[in-house]
Design a protein around this nucleic acid. Sequence first.
DNA 1: GTCTATAGGATGATAGAC
DNA 2: GTCTATCATCCTATAGAC
Lengths: 173, 173
Amino acid sequence: MIERKDKILTAALELFANHGYNGVSTNKIAKAAEVSEGLIFRHFKNKQGLLDAILEQAFEKAAVLYAHIITEQDPKQVLYKTITLPFSVEKSEYYFWKLQFKLKWELEISGKEKMQPLLDKLNWAFGELGYEHPREEAELLQHLTESISSGILKDGMETQQHLKDFLLTKYKV
Amino acid sequence: MIERKDKILTAALELFANHGYNGVSTNKIAKAAEVSEGLIFRHFKNKQGLLDAILEQAFEKAAVLYAHIITEQDPKQVLYKTITLPFSVEKSEYYFWKLQFKLKWELEISGKEKMQPLLDKLNWAFGELGYEHPREEAELLQHLTESISSGILKDGMETQQHLKDFLLTKYKV
DNA sequence: GTCTATAGGATGATAGAC
DNA sequence: GTCTATCATCCTATAGAC
Protein backbone atom coordinates (compact mmCIF):
# COMPACT_ATOMS: atom_id res chain seq x y z
CA MET A 1 0.00 0.00 0.00
CA ILE A 2 1.22 3.46 -0.89
CA GLU A 3 1.54 5.56 2.23
CA ARG A 4 0.34 9.10 2.12
CA LYS A 5 3.71 10.31 3.30
CA ASP A 6 5.27 8.80 0.17
CA LYS A 7 2.58 10.30 -2.03
CA ILE A 8 3.58 13.69 -0.69
CA LEU A 9 7.28 13.02 -1.28
CA THR A 10 6.67 11.84 -4.84
CA ALA A 11 4.41 14.73 -5.77
CA ALA A 12 6.70 17.30 -4.17
CA LEU A 13 9.76 15.87 -5.93
CA GLU A 14 8.19 16.26 -9.35
CA LEU A 15 6.87 19.74 -8.65
CA PHE A 16 10.12 21.01 -7.09
CA ALA A 17 12.13 19.50 -9.95
CA ASN A 18 9.97 21.21 -12.56
CA HIS A 19 9.19 24.55 -10.93
CA GLY A 20 11.77 25.03 -8.19
CA TYR A 21 11.31 25.37 -4.44
CA ASN A 22 9.85 28.87 -4.41
CA GLY A 23 7.79 28.13 -7.50
CA VAL A 24 5.62 25.57 -5.72
CA SER A 25 3.23 26.12 -2.81
CA THR A 26 2.34 23.53 -0.21
CA ASN A 27 -1.22 23.88 -1.46
CA LYS A 28 -0.22 22.71 -4.93
CA ILE A 29 1.78 19.83 -3.49
CA ALA A 30 -1.19 18.71 -1.39
CA LYS A 31 -3.50 18.79 -4.41
CA ALA A 32 -1.05 16.88 -6.60
CA ALA A 33 -0.61 14.27 -3.87
CA GLU A 34 -4.38 14.16 -3.24
CA VAL A 35 -3.81 14.83 0.41
CA SER A 36 -4.84 17.51 2.86
CA GLU A 37 -2.40 20.39 3.13
CA GLY A 38 -2.12 20.04 6.90
CA LEU A 39 -0.72 16.55 6.53
CA ILE A 40 2.44 17.94 4.92
CA PHE A 41 3.20 19.87 8.09
CA ARG A 42 2.36 16.91 10.34
CA HIS A 43 4.88 14.74 8.55
CA PHE A 44 7.62 17.22 7.68
CA LYS A 45 7.16 20.09 10.18
CA ASN A 46 7.42 22.74 7.45
CA LYS A 47 8.04 23.20 3.74
CA GLN A 48 11.80 23.25 4.20
CA GLY A 49 11.58 19.96 6.10
CA LEU A 50 9.82 18.42 3.11
CA LEU A 51 12.59 19.57 0.83
CA ASP A 52 15.23 18.23 3.22
CA ALA A 53 13.58 14.81 3.23
CA ILE A 54 13.63 14.76 -0.58
CA LEU A 55 17.25 15.90 -0.68
CA GLU A 56 18.25 13.14 1.69
CA GLN A 57 16.77 10.59 -0.71
CA ALA A 58 18.55 12.31 -3.58
CA PHE A 59 21.94 12.16 -1.88
CA GLU A 60 21.49 8.46 -1.20
CA LYS A 61 20.73 7.78 -4.86
CA ALA A 62 23.71 9.86 -5.96
CA ALA A 63 26.02 8.09 -3.50
CA VAL A 64 25.19 4.75 -5.11
CA LEU A 65 26.05 6.04 -8.58
CA TYR A 66 29.29 7.61 -7.38
CA ALA A 67 30.36 4.51 -5.46
CA HIS A 68 30.19 2.60 -8.72
CA ILE A 69 32.99 4.79 -10.04
CA ILE A 70 35.01 5.30 -6.87
CA THR A 71 35.40 1.59 -6.18
CA GLU A 72 36.56 0.90 -9.74
CA GLN A 73 40.18 -0.28 -9.90
CA ASP A 74 40.88 -0.02 -13.65
CA PRO A 75 41.77 3.59 -14.60
CA LYS A 76 40.33 3.23 -18.10
CA GLN A 77 37.08 1.98 -16.59
CA VAL A 78 37.00 5.01 -14.30
CA LEU A 79 37.00 7.29 -17.34
CA TYR A 80 34.48 5.10 -19.15
CA LYS A 81 32.07 5.06 -16.24
CA THR A 82 32.44 8.79 -15.68
CA ILE A 83 31.68 9.61 -19.31
CA THR A 84 28.72 7.25 -19.58
CA LEU A 85 27.23 8.08 -16.17
CA PRO A 86 25.00 10.92 -17.38
CA PHE A 87 23.58 8.60 -20.05
CA SER A 88 22.83 5.77 -17.65
CA VAL A 89 20.60 7.60 -15.17
CA GLU A 90 17.25 5.84 -14.92
CA LYS A 91 13.98 7.53 -15.75
CA SER A 92 12.84 6.89 -12.22
CA GLU A 93 15.70 9.01 -10.91
CA TYR A 94 15.30 11.74 -13.45
CA TYR A 95 13.48 14.12 -11.11
CA PHE A 96 16.05 13.67 -8.34
CA TRP A 97 18.72 14.54 -10.83
CA LYS A 98 16.93 17.56 -12.23
CA LEU A 99 16.22 18.82 -8.71
CA GLN A 100 19.94 18.86 -7.93
CA PHE A 101 20.64 21.22 -10.81
CA LYS A 102 17.61 23.37 -10.08
CA LEU A 103 18.47 23.87 -6.42
CA LYS A 104 22.13 24.42 -7.11
CA TRP A 105 21.09 27.67 -8.75
CA GLU A 106 17.89 28.60 -6.98
CA LEU A 107 19.04 28.06 -3.41
CA GLU A 108 22.76 27.94 -4.17
CA ILE A 109 23.16 24.50 -2.66
CA SER A 110 26.45 23.48 -4.23
CA GLY A 111 26.88 19.77 -3.48
CA LYS A 112 30.51 20.40 -4.38
CA GLU A 113 31.91 18.39 -1.46
CA LYS A 114 30.02 15.34 -2.73
CA MET A 115 31.94 15.56 -5.99
CA GLN A 116 35.38 15.73 -4.39
CA PRO A 117 35.94 11.94 -4.09
CA LEU A 118 34.96 11.62 -7.74
CA LEU A 119 37.42 14.32 -8.71
CA ASP A 120 40.17 12.61 -6.72
CA LYS A 121 39.45 9.31 -8.42
CA LEU A 122 39.61 10.93 -11.86
CA ASN A 123 42.86 12.60 -10.85
CA TRP A 124 44.24 9.19 -9.89
CA ALA A 125 43.01 7.58 -13.12
CA PHE A 126 44.58 10.22 -15.38
CA GLY A 127 47.81 9.87 -13.41
CA GLU A 128 47.82 6.09 -13.89
CA LEU A 129 47.25 6.56 -17.61
CA GLY A 130 50.31 8.77 -17.89
CA TYR A 131 48.61 12.11 -18.56
CA GLU A 132 50.89 15.09 -17.92
CA HIS A 133 48.39 17.18 -15.97
CA PRO A 134 46.03 14.72 -14.28
CA ARG A 135 44.47 17.30 -11.97
CA GLU A 136 43.47 19.63 -14.79
CA GLU A 137 42.32 16.73 -16.98
CA ALA A 138 40.14 15.56 -14.11
CA GLU A 139 38.59 18.98 -13.60
CA LEU A 140 38.01 19.35 -17.31
CA LEU A 141 36.26 16.02 -17.63
CA GLN A 142 34.16 16.73 -14.57
CA HIS A 143 33.13 20.05 -16.06
CA LEU A 144 32.24 18.28 -19.28
CA THR A 145 30.03 15.68 -17.66
CA GLU A 146 28.38 18.41 -15.61
CA SER A 147 27.54 20.41 -18.70
CA ILE A 148 26.50 17.35 -20.69
CA SER A 149 24.18 16.38 -17.83
CA SER A 150 22.74 19.84 -17.98
CA GLY A 151 22.24 19.44 -21.72
CA ILE A 152 20.47 16.13 -21.26
CA LEU A 153 18.12 17.57 -18.66
CA LYS A 154 17.30 20.62 -20.75
CA ASP A 155 17.25 19.31 -24.32
CA GLY A 156 17.03 15.53 -24.02
CA MET A 157 19.52 12.71 -24.18
CA GLU A 158 19.39 12.44 -28.00
CA THR A 159 21.00 15.86 -28.32
CA GLN A 160 24.08 14.71 -26.35
CA GLN A 161 24.48 11.09 -27.49
CA HIS A 162 27.13 11.82 -30.11
CA LEU A 163 29.27 13.60 -27.52
CA LYS A 164 29.45 10.43 -25.46
CA ASP A 165 30.86 8.48 -28.42
CA PHE A 166 33.21 11.32 -29.27
CA LEU A 167 34.54 11.49 -25.71
CA LEU A 168 34.99 7.73 -25.48
CA THR A 169 37.07 7.84 -28.67
CA LYS A 170 39.01 10.90 -27.54
CA TYR A 171 40.00 9.29 -24.25
CA LYS A 172 40.48 5.88 -25.93
CA VAL A 173 38.19 3.98 -23.55
CA MET B 1 20.46 62.30 -11.93
CA ILE B 2 19.53 58.72 -11.23
CA GLU B 3 15.99 58.05 -12.32
CA ARG B 4 13.78 56.03 -10.10
CA LYS B 5 13.02 53.66 -12.93
CA ASP B 6 16.72 52.83 -13.12
CA LYS B 7 16.94 52.42 -9.36
CA ILE B 8 14.21 49.80 -9.63
CA LEU B 9 16.00 48.02 -12.48
CA THR B 10 19.31 47.99 -10.62
CA ALA B 11 17.84 46.76 -7.35
CA ALA B 12 15.71 44.13 -9.07
CA LEU B 13 18.67 42.86 -11.09
CA GLU B 14 20.75 42.24 -7.99
CA LEU B 15 17.90 40.63 -6.09
CA PHE B 16 16.79 38.41 -8.97
CA ALA B 17 20.39 37.38 -9.64
CA ASN B 18 20.92 36.40 -6.02
CA HIS B 19 17.56 34.92 -5.05
CA GLY B 20 15.80 34.10 -8.30
CA TYR B 21 12.54 35.40 -9.73
CA ASN B 22 10.18 33.62 -7.35
CA GLY B 23 12.49 34.26 -4.41
CA VAL B 24 12.00 38.02 -4.51
CA SER B 25 8.79 39.98 -3.91
CA THR B 26 7.97 43.33 -5.45
CA ASN B 27 7.83 44.64 -1.89
CA LYS B 28 11.47 43.71 -1.32
CA ILE B 29 12.50 45.26 -4.63
CA ALA B 30 10.72 48.50 -3.76
CA LYS B 31 12.44 48.66 -0.37
CA ALA B 32 15.88 47.93 -1.87
CA ALA B 33 15.32 50.62 -4.50
CA GLU B 34 13.93 53.03 -1.87
CA VAL B 35 10.84 53.50 -3.95
CA SER B 36 7.13 52.93 -3.45
CA GLU B 37 5.91 49.52 -4.49
CA GLY B 38 3.20 50.95 -6.75
CA LEU B 39 5.83 52.63 -8.90
CA ILE B 40 7.09 49.26 -10.08
CA PHE B 41 3.71 48.51 -11.60
CA ARG B 42 3.40 51.97 -13.14
CA HIS B 43 6.68 51.54 -14.98
CA PHE B 44 6.65 47.84 -15.81
CA LYS B 45 2.97 46.86 -15.70
CA ASN B 46 3.68 43.77 -13.60
CA LYS B 47 6.49 41.74 -12.05
CA GLN B 48 7.06 39.78 -15.24
CA GLY B 49 7.37 43.04 -17.17
CA LEU B 50 10.14 44.12 -14.81
CA LEU B 51 12.00 40.88 -15.43
CA ASP B 52 11.53 41.26 -19.19
CA ALA B 53 13.04 44.75 -19.10
CA ILE B 54 16.08 43.40 -17.24
CA LEU B 55 16.44 40.47 -19.63
CA GLU B 56 16.38 42.80 -22.60
CA GLN B 57 19.34 44.68 -21.12
CA ALA B 58 21.08 41.38 -20.47
CA PHE B 59 20.66 40.17 -24.04
CA GLU B 60 22.11 43.41 -25.36
CA LYS B 61 25.19 43.05 -23.15
CA ALA B 62 25.62 39.43 -24.19
CA ALA B 63 25.26 40.30 -27.88
CA VAL B 64 28.21 42.69 -27.59
CA LEU B 65 30.43 40.00 -26.07
CA TYR B 66 29.41 37.42 -28.64
CA ALA B 67 29.92 39.81 -31.57
CA HIS B 68 33.53 40.17 -30.46
CA ILE B 69 34.03 36.48 -31.21
CA ILE B 70 31.77 36.10 -34.23
CA THR B 71 33.44 38.87 -36.21
CA GLU B 72 36.91 37.47 -35.54
CA GLN B 73 38.62 36.24 -38.74
CA ASP B 74 41.57 34.32 -37.28
CA PRO B 75 40.50 30.79 -36.21
CA LYS B 76 43.10 30.62 -33.44
CA GLN B 77 41.82 33.92 -32.09
CA VAL B 78 38.28 32.54 -32.12
CA LEU B 79 39.37 29.76 -29.76
CA TYR B 80 41.40 32.17 -27.64
CA LYS B 81 38.54 34.60 -27.24
CA THR B 82 36.07 31.81 -26.48
CA ILE B 83 38.26 30.34 -23.76
CA THR B 84 39.06 33.68 -22.14
CA LEU B 85 35.55 35.13 -22.41
CA PRO B 86 34.32 33.85 -19.03
CA PHE B 87 37.37 35.43 -17.40
CA SER B 88 36.87 38.81 -19.01
CA VAL B 89 33.34 39.60 -17.88
CA GLU B 90 33.29 42.90 -16.01
CA LYS B 91 32.17 43.19 -12.40
CA SER B 92 29.47 45.58 -13.54
CA GLU B 93 27.97 42.86 -15.70
CA TYR B 94 28.33 40.13 -13.12
CA TYR B 95 24.68 40.20 -12.03
CA PHE B 96 23.41 40.09 -15.60
CA TRP B 97 25.54 37.03 -16.13
CA LYS B 98 24.48 35.29 -12.96
CA LEU B 99 20.84 36.00 -13.72
CA GLN B 100 21.10 34.15 -17.03
CA PHE B 101 22.22 30.98 -15.28
CA LYS B 102 19.66 31.34 -12.52
CA LEU B 103 16.73 31.78 -14.88
CA LYS B 104 17.88 29.06 -17.21
CA TRP B 105 17.08 26.66 -14.42
CA GLU B 106 14.35 28.39 -12.46
CA LEU B 107 12.15 29.40 -15.37
CA GLU B 108 13.75 27.13 -17.96
CA ILE B 109 14.63 29.99 -20.26
CA SER B 110 17.25 28.33 -22.40
CA GLY B 111 18.88 31.10 -24.42
CA LYS B 112 20.15 28.28 -26.60
CA GLU B 113 19.34 30.02 -29.88
CA LYS B 114 21.58 32.92 -28.84
CA MET B 115 24.50 30.49 -28.62
CA GLN B 116 24.03 28.99 -32.08
CA PRO B 117 26.07 31.59 -34.01
CA LEU B 118 28.88 31.10 -31.49
CA LEU B 119 28.74 27.34 -31.98
CA ASP B 120 28.82 27.77 -35.76
CA LYS B 121 31.84 30.02 -35.49
CA LEU B 122 33.67 27.50 -33.31
CA ASN B 123 32.76 24.79 -35.79
CA TRP B 124 34.28 26.88 -38.55
CA ALA B 125 37.41 27.62 -36.53
CA PHE B 126 38.09 23.97 -35.68
CA GLY B 127 37.55 23.10 -39.34
CA GLU B 128 40.07 25.74 -40.44
CA LEU B 129 42.57 24.40 -37.96
CA GLY B 130 42.30 20.91 -39.43
CA TYR B 131 40.52 19.14 -36.56
CA GLU B 132 38.92 15.87 -37.61
CA HIS B 133 35.57 16.42 -35.90
CA PRO B 134 35.04 20.20 -35.76
CA ARG B 135 31.36 19.98 -34.80
CA GLU B 136 32.02 17.81 -31.77
CA GLU B 137 35.08 19.83 -30.78
CA ALA B 138 32.94 22.96 -30.94
CA GLU B 139 30.22 21.49 -28.76
CA LEU B 140 32.78 20.21 -26.28
CA LEU B 141 34.47 23.57 -25.93
CA GLN B 142 31.14 25.33 -25.59
CA HIS B 143 30.17 22.90 -22.85
CA LEU B 144 33.47 23.57 -21.14
CA THR B 145 33.12 27.35 -21.16
CA GLU B 146 29.55 26.98 -19.94
CA SER B 147 30.63 24.86 -17.00
CA ILE B 148 33.66 27.03 -16.25
CA SER B 149 31.39 30.07 -16.22
CA SER B 150 29.16 28.26 -13.79
CA GLY B 151 32.22 27.52 -11.64
CA ILE B 152 33.28 31.17 -11.65
CA LEU B 153 29.83 32.34 -10.63
CA LYS B 154 29.54 29.80 -7.83
CA ASP B 155 33.07 29.53 -6.47
CA GLY B 156 34.89 32.58 -7.79
CA MET B 157 37.28 33.21 -10.66
CA GLU B 158 40.37 32.13 -8.72
CA THR B 159 39.11 28.55 -8.60
CA GLN B 160 38.99 28.35 -12.41
CA GLN B 161 42.03 30.41 -13.44
CA HIS B 162 44.35 27.44 -13.92
CA LEU B 163 41.84 25.83 -16.28
CA LYS B 164 42.06 28.81 -18.58
CA ASP B 165 45.84 28.41 -18.90
CA PHE B 166 45.50 24.67 -19.31
CA LEU B 167 42.94 25.06 -22.08
CA LEU B 168 45.01 27.68 -23.90
CA THR B 169 47.97 25.29 -23.87
CA LYS B 170 45.85 22.32 -24.89
CA TYR B 171 44.41 24.11 -27.90
CA LYS B 172 47.77 25.80 -28.63
CA VAL B 173 46.41 29.33 -28.75
C1' DG C 1 -2.74 9.18 10.52
C1' DT C 2 -5.73 12.11 8.32
C1' DC C 3 -9.04 15.81 7.56
C1' DT C 4 -11.41 20.47 8.03
C1' DA C 5 -11.20 25.00 9.35
C1' DT C 6 -8.82 28.91 10.02
C1' DA C 7 -5.32 32.20 11.68
C1' DG C 8 -1.93 35.63 10.42
C1' DG C 9 0.89 37.43 7.32
C1' DA C 10 2.85 38.19 2.60
C1' DT C 11 2.00 38.88 -2.28
C1' DG C 12 0.89 41.00 -6.75
C1' DA C 13 -1.70 44.55 -8.32
C1' DT C 14 -4.98 48.85 -8.50
C1' DA C 15 -7.08 53.53 -7.41
C1' DG C 16 -6.71 58.06 -6.38
C1' DA C 17 -4.27 62.09 -4.53
C1' DC C 18 -0.33 65.15 -5.24
C1' DG D 1 6.25 60.63 -12.01
C1' DT D 2 5.59 59.37 -7.49
C1' DC D 3 3.35 58.13 -3.13
C1' DT D 4 -0.19 56.26 0.18
C1' DA D 5 -3.82 53.36 1.00
C1' DT D 6 -6.09 49.44 -0.01
C1' DC D 7 -7.82 44.90 -2.05
C1' DA D 8 -8.35 40.14 -3.15
C1' DT D 9 -5.75 36.34 -3.22
C1' DC D 10 -2.42 33.17 -1.84
C1' DC D 11 0.90 31.37 1.45
C1' DT D 12 2.79 28.77 5.44
C1' DA D 13 1.51 26.92 9.47
C1' DT D 14 -1.51 25.51 13.57
C1' DA D 15 -5.62 23.64 16.25
C1' DG D 16 -8.88 20.42 16.99
C1' DA D 17 -12.04 16.70 15.53
C1' DC D 18 -12.29 11.98 13.89
